[in-house]
Design a protein around this nucleic acid. Structure first.
Lengths: 205, 205
DNA sequence: AGGCTAGTCTGAACCTCGTTCAATGAGGTT
DNA sequence: AACCTCATTGAACGAGGTTCAGACTAGCCT
């Protein structure tokens, strides 16, 4: 028997339990009230532990938020992947639009969680964790596949550039579109913007 | 004689002087060290006034940052407008690319100031001030003009949608492009992404 | 000039946070 | 049971934005 993971001692179990509980609580709080609702004392009260206990399980509150972001990123990936799987289009343009609309939908329905994904990135110029880039890579791969069919004679390099460009574009449209319902754009207009943009980009002359 | 602005009393002058001084200091600090470098006590020390004095001149630190953002937004507008004026292209596609590259350049050279423009928006869900929308409107107008020549039979509505979509797209590309030199994209690759995107969008089949 | 009033200016004090750490206590080992 | 080890606790620390009662001016009236 390999004993690399040998003792799930009682303490370890408690630790894992607390960790999971904190992530759940933080996720709910971010979903409902946004990142600023993550306060050490409130989390401790709700998780029924001491403030210091949080720091036994996470290096700091950012660490906790990153854990939530991990979950969010995975949900996002699943939703986008599912959108194409559910409605198999043979036209790659349609696939791109479907995925983008799924992205918009996810962002609109989970605005605070989705924002947290990018807000942390900015404030702390720390090293991006592995899984972050990995998840982003998965998203990119989803985009690159239909794109390769639209532009069959792009080099690998051009394709990658286009993938980034399109992802960033859709991200930008969603970001500014969701910002401020004031002076703002209703959801279906945002959908239209994405569709028009993608149609035009992918309509080879 | 209209006396709507009748008394520039000594107190008013001091107030205006302090206000201007604070904006200068804040601008420099944001430019050099980003938004988190805006601390009441440090500002007061550097401006040689009491902490409380700041609150006589601005409602809070956000108000000060908004004042800096006002300046930044104007510079940005000027730079973008100047870019097309300097190199008068007759092809509207080229104009769009020129302006977008000017936008990228400004964002790259004044990253912290440029970020402050959008970071505040997010954190405080307050009412967007007049001039903010006005400046944004000016930017949109700059884009809409060449765009109208590319798509002469778009309705006013479609044109507006397209304008927003393109601005948001370029913004997204710049935003994600400048984020993290790590795993990142060098400036001229970002330029390429913008150019490719805009070319494809504006090449009518 | 001498006061009187309506402000401004001051900075100590208040409050809210994230984070730490000496003291406590529980788990596991002999 | 006695001992050692390490997790856990929560009061205390430091940093930051904001406030406010008192000190202080500047302009104005007599």
């Amino acid at each position: 028997m390999p004993d690399t993971a040998k003792k799930p001692s009682k303490a370890d179990l408690r630790r894992e339990d607390l960790r999971a509980r904190l992530i759940d609580i933080a996720e709910t709080r971010i979903r409902d009230e946004g990142l600023p609702a993550i306060k050490a004392r409130e989390l401790a009260r709700e998780a029924d532990c001491a403030v210091g206990a949080i720091y036994n399980v996470f290096p700091d509150l950012n660490g906790l938020i990153m854990a939530v972001n991990g979950r969010t990123f995975q949900s996002l990936g699943k939703v986008v992947a599912a959108s194409v799987a559910a409605a198999p289009q043979n036209a790659p343009q349609a696939e791109l639009i479907t995925m983008s609309h799924a992205y918009l939908r996810f962002a609109a329905e989970n605005t605070n969680l989705w924002r947290a994904l990018f807000d942390l990135e900015m404030s702390t110029e720390m090293d991006v964790p592995q899984w972050y880039l990995a998840e982003l890579g998965k998203l990119f791969a989803l985009i690159a596949a239909p794109l390769a069919r639209v532009f069959p004679n792009y080099t690998r390099h051009e394709l990658e550039l286009m993938t980034r460009a399109l992802f960033s574009s859709v991200h930008g449209i969603v970001l500014l579109g969701l910002q401020k319902r004031i002076s703002g754009v209703p959801l279906d207009k945002i959908e239209d913007m994405i569709a028009i943009l993608l149609s035009n980009v992918t309509s080879q002359a």
